[in-house]
Computed example of a mutant assay.
Amino acid sequence: MSVKVRRVFLLALVVVLGAAIFAQAGVEIPKKFENPKKVRIALVREVGEGSFFERYLAGAQSMADELGITLLEATAHGDMARMITMIENFITQRVDAIIIDHGRPDPLVPKIMEALDRGIKVVTFDLVVNDDRVPEIEQDDLLIGYMISKQLAVDFAGKANVIYVNVGGFAPLDKRDKMWQIVKWRFPSIKEVAKIGAVTGSTAADTQTRMEAAMKEHPEANAVLAMWDEFAKGAVRAIMQAGKSSQFRVYSVDITNEDIQMMIQENSPWVATVGTDPYSVGRLAVRAAAALVAGEKVPKYLLVEPQLVTREFLLKNNITSMDELVKALPALGESPLVWPDWMKALVEKNKK
């Protein structure tokens, strides 16, 4: 390379790098976030029990920490009246935004409207609110229901006697159920021989008791479809304690560290699950709320793409935790949804 060409090359490189630095410096952080600690986002959860919700909360807190904002968390432990009171308290405190995690529309929508009328932004996770001002986050539950139901049908070549574990009245579970009904219609030799399930303060343990009774009443059963991993845990424990792992295959929704440990244990009947990383979902919820506070336009529906995880995949890749799973299956990692440039710049600024 001649001296002249080298000079031209170096000059071009300086121009490109300078432009990149200028562009990064030119990202304007919203005025509201100049002192991000003053931004207060409340997270109100219907339930917090179970490893899924623990990881979801950890993700939400990590995103809040990276943005430097204040996250205020309250969990109702399944008590809807308590959940309403928590939302009322945060409205009174005039927080900047409220993330509402699960719950039922009828009692909660009036409080959501009250928050919006007072200028408080609202984001929901697995709660349907027919108002364009309220972004809804979900794990694409229709797709989840279809993926796991289809996996069961294909694995059994269209013929199985299924104990179905699910309940109605919860938006994500209702959506998943619709896809199960369609798959049963498509594969008429897939028989639902029993339906069990209840959401309680000890869902897994109560499901185990119900599963033990169902196995006795339906000795012909050879598959379990559980539309929540807390259901699956109870079913798997009942099957293994009865010594019937070779008779059953268990299919579920959601994936956590505890689920992985149960799937990879010796003789586990838990063969497949479909879900997202709740850590990533919690982070998305905080970003969506922060974006609304900053005046960003956030899409109405934020659907996090689910992934199929099989016991075979876990064993083949020596996976024992969610962190290892995300590395082996990158699609489970950080969602690309709601990442404005100023938010990335704020995260980088807070690292210094």
Rank of each mutant, 00 (worst) to 15 (best):
M262W: 13
K32I: 09
E312M: 12
G78K: 11
M83K: 08
A232Q: 11
F52E: 01
L11N: 13
Q61L: 14
A42M: 06
A160G: 07
K195T: 14
M227E: 10
Q93D: 12
P340A: 07
A42I: 08
E305A: 08
R6Q: 12
A288M: 05
T209V: 10
W342H: 03
A64M: 07
H218T: 10
M63R: 09
G243I: 01
A23C: 06
Y56Q: 05
D254W: 01
G333T: 06
I182L: 15
S202I: 11
A238M: 09
F53H: 15
F170M: 15
M263P: 06
A115C: 11
V293R: 02
M343Y: 00
L284I: 04
E46K: 09
R283P: 00
A115Q: 12
L329A: 15
I163C: 07
G68N: 06
S149M: 13
Q24L: 15
E73F: 12
R104V: 15
N130C: 04
W185P: 00
S245F: 10
I29R: 08
F90A: 04
A226L: 01
K349E: 09
I239T: 03
L72W: 11
N166D: 03
A115T: 09
D65T: 07
Q261V: 14
A12R: 10
I196Q: 02
V154F: 08
N166Q: 07
T276H: 01
I190Y: 02
L142G: 07
N267E: 14
G59L: 11
V8Q: 08
Q93F: 12
E136S: 00
K327T: 15
T124P: 10
K38D: 15
M215E: 02
E88W: 03
G50K: 02
E296P: 02
A97L: 07
D229G: 10
H102Y: 14
A171N: 14
Y251D: 00
